[in-house]
């Protein structure tokens, strides 16, 4: 019996194609685990196994010592909140109403008394309080993502599963969302975040798990995992890791840009040949 999330030997096969294979993952209370990996590595699939949406072909997932599949929907909703990669809403609810949907699992419980306060706090933390009366479908992608984040926070759970919460966000809000994730962990929650920005991952993760082609390629502290050798191999692109102000910063190695040939005033009618990024960089197979 342990608090937190525990996946053992998780494998998923869809239509005969293995998507995940033998993934072990532990997420303890108070911890932020960041999941990274190339497109199609299986991050979202792994997350949907952890949420209980997809039953793994092999392996087990336990939440607080019980198989995830054994929970009733509402019971599970009181323990874990999920931010999906894509938000959708079928009708024109207002942003506040969407955030309030996060309180649904607590309806008719003692917790419901705190609804107003929790919703207000969640909106504040996701910086969407000023959007409360707006219709959700009319919000920008980033605003929708933040409103959904507020909904997830309003659920007041001890496990948070966030699939690319920063994908549509500007720089300021990317940092804010990950700060909130850290605060949740500090308050005792277990947090799993899927990210693409490796610098962001290194800055906020307790542990970074690298998924590649459906397998867990590496798992450890940012300093153990965020290394040029590993990342260059996994992403099939040369990567540098530099240290700046105490943080690891991941920089893809890029060819120098061709200097501008013609001065702007005497721009010729002939288009300047631009560097073709697809041709320029043959990836060394590492």
């Amino acid at each position: 019996m342990s608090a937190g999330l525990r996946a053992r030997g998780v494998g998923v096969v869809i239509d005969g194609t293995p998507i995940l294979d033998g993934v072990d993952l532990d997420v303890a209370a108070g911890e932020v685990v960041v999941l990274v990996g190339p497109n199609g590595a299986g991050k979202s699939t792994l997350l949907s196994v952890l949420t209980g949406d997809v039953a793994p072909t092999t392996g087990t997932v336990e939440l607080d010592g019980r198989p995830v599949a054994s929970y009733r929907a509402r019971e599970l909703a009181r323990r874990r909140a999920v931010l999906l990669q894509q938000q959708r809403l079928a009708f024109g609810f207002r942003a506040r109403e969407v955030v309030e949907m996060g309180r649904a699992p607590w309806h008719r419980s003692a917790e419901a008394e705190r609804d107003l306060e929790v919703v207000a706090a969640a909106e504040e933390r996701a910086d969407v309080a000023h959007l409360a009366t707006r219709l959700f479908p009319t919000l920008s992608g980033g605003e929708q993502a933040r409103v959904s984040m507020a909904r997830v926070l309003a659920q007041s759970t001890t496990l948070l599963l966030l699939d690319e919460p920063t994908a549509a966000l500007d720089l300021q809000h990317q940092e804010a969302v990950l700060r909130v994730a850290r605060e949740e962990a500090a308050a005792g929650a277990a947090v799993v975040v899927v990210l693409h920005d490796l610098s962001l991952a290194a800055a906020y993760a307790d542990r970074v798990c690298v998924l590649a082609a459906g397998r867990l390629r590496a798992s450890g502290t940012p300093r153990e995992v965020v290394t040029p050798a590993l990342l260059s191999e996994v992403y099939q692109h040369p990567v540098d890791v530099v240290e700046h102000a105490g943080h690891l910063v991941v920089v893809p190695v890029r060819p120098p840009r061709a200097p501008a040939t013609a001065p702007a005033a005497a721009a010729p009618a002939v288009p300047v040949p631009s560097a073709d990024p697809h041709q320029e960089q043959p990836c060394p197979a590492t």
Partner: peptide
């Protein structure tokens, strides 16, 4: 919210 997200809120 869609089937999955609806399930996630219980």
């Amino acid at each position: 919210l869609g089937d999955r997200a609806a399930r996630h809120v219980g």
